[in-house]
């Protein structure tokens, strides 16, 4: 009795909202955590279980397949698979091209929009955000057509200028898919960065101007450092986003043979589940992708909090 009364008073001290203890909070939280458990936790746990098992046929391959505990064997097989490792490497290369292009482009565009001489900011904001209202599937479709000779004005114009590019051949298809990602996401991040730029205190910029700093100097040495926190959040979500790469290569793979069915890890996992019918390997691959995301986002948050402190 007494301890119960004590804890209630202690709890009430925190914020003076009575009747907001555990039981009421539960009422508000249960719906979310219920769907969270069903849609995220349970699937991951079940996949972990699956990834440690394997279907094995007995004897001569007749009769029912048996589920056997195999430990880490699925993981070993996934990592030994040449196509999976190639997919990871390709994803790495994709990141190396995509992140500088997209984030760099967004920073430059946001700084340009924030320049004193820029006109029609509202219109530009709306225009650059336009691609984000286009679903990934449709964006990939549009670009697939823009890459296809015979239908594409782009290929036609380049040919008119004497340039022959096959956007969908084995060498160009990766940059071509990078371009789709850049098109989809740059504008979205321009808006975030532009809003961050608008929060840069006027007085600092005024002081810099009085001290003789030009527009470009102010952009590089004052505005840019001040939007670094926003930039680190963008980096975090961009890295998580790149690991999701699935829709664009899936659509492009129908237009060209250069994109194989195991082109990136997500396609590999999809292929494992639905073409090769090896659910255990698919589960292991999914766990690897999620683990990779966890490690990378941890690294980015660590790095950025260190940067923000210094």
């Amino acid at each position: 009795m007494a301890t119960q009364a004590l804890t209630t008073t202690v709890r009430r001290q925190g914020r003076a909202l009575a009747g907001t203890g555990g039981r009421t909070a539960a009422l508000f939280l249960v719906p979310f955590f219920a769907v969270f458990a069903i849609a995220m936790i349970a699937p991951v746990i079940y996949s972990l279980v699956l990834s440690f098992h394997s279907q094995q046929k007995s004897g001569l391959g007749f009769g029912e397949a048996k589920t056997v505990f195999v430990g880490l064997e699925n993981y070993v097989q996934v990592f030994q698979s040449e196509t999976f490792v190639e997919g990871i490497a390709r994803l790495g290369l994709y990141c190396l091209i995509y992140i500088p292009c997209m984030v760099g482009g967004a920073v430059v565009f946001a700084l340009l929009m924030d320049a004193t001489v820029a006109k029609a900011r509202k219109l530009f904001q709306l225009l650059v955000f336009l691609p984000h209202a286009v679903p990934g599937v449709i964006a990939a479709l549009i670009w697939a057509y823009l890459y296809t000779p015979g239908i594409s004005p782009l290929v036609q114009a380049l040919q008119g200028g004497g340039i022959q590019i096959n956007f969908l051949d084995a060498h160009m298809v990766l940059p071509s898919i990078v371009n789709i990602g850049v098109w989809e996401w740059t504008g979205y991040n321009v808006i975030i960065l532009f809003t961050a730029l608008q929060a840069v205190p006027r007085e600092i910029l005024e002081a810099a101007r009085v001290d003789g700093a030009g527009e470009i100097r102010a952009a590089v040495s004052i505005k840019f450092p001040l939007i670094l926190p926003a930039l680190s959040v963008i980096m975090l979500f961009t890295i998580i986003g790149t690991l999701q790469l699935f829709t664009e290569p899936n659509i492009i793979s129908k237009a060209t043979a250069s994109v194989t069915s195991t082109w990136v890890p997500n396609l590999w996992a999809y292929d494992a589940a639905f073409i090769r019918h090896n659910l255990n390997q698919a589960a292991a691959a999914s766990i690897i992708i999620a683990g990779l995301a966890a490690i990378l986002s941890l690294a980015v948050t660590r790095l950025s909090s260190r940067m923000n402190k210094s």
């Binding site: 995220m40 699937p43 079940y46 699956l50 999701q244 699935f246 992708i289 999620a290 995301a293």
Partner: peptide, 14 residues
Amino acid sequence: LIPNTATVLPMYLL
């Protein structure tokens, strides 16, 4: 922080 696509296959399996 967990990418959506990483949970899609697990969700399908479940």
